[in-house]
Amino acid sequence: MRNSGPVVVMQLPQQLNHLAVGLFMNELQPLLEADRPRIVLDCSQIAHLDSAGVEMLLQCTEEVMKRDGDLKLADLSPYASVILELMRVDRLFEVFETAQQAVQSFHAVPAHSIPQSEAWYSPAYGALGDLEAAS
């Protein structure tokens, strides 16, 4: 497990079955109980994923949603990608090519500071009237 500021990146085990889920959840549970947990699960190593693993992902999602956090998946292995697509749960997650991208997505600058009541196009090319007046 490695920390990236407030975002926690965790590597999922190669075998995500009933047994592995129990062990993994022991490690993950304290993080899920934090305020606004922000978690990235690195799925690059997954070579086997069964229903228990998928259920764990859904359970984690539910837990982070309760606490106004978010859980994102990164670097899905082909096996995991197919299983999630087959079970139609892939659309529940934001999926990124790399863990780094997933972490950065948490840090993307929201556009809070841009006043929405005003013109939403900045005069990037200058004012036409100014050009006309100058000419």
């Binding site: 993307a108 929201p110 929405q116 939403w120 990037a124």
Partner: peptide
């Protein structure tokens, strides 16, 4: 493109 959604971005995206 330059077109931005109206409202507020409550979290990225």
């Amino acid at each position: 493109c330059q077109m931005r959604p109206s409202g507020r971005e409550i979290r990225p995206g």
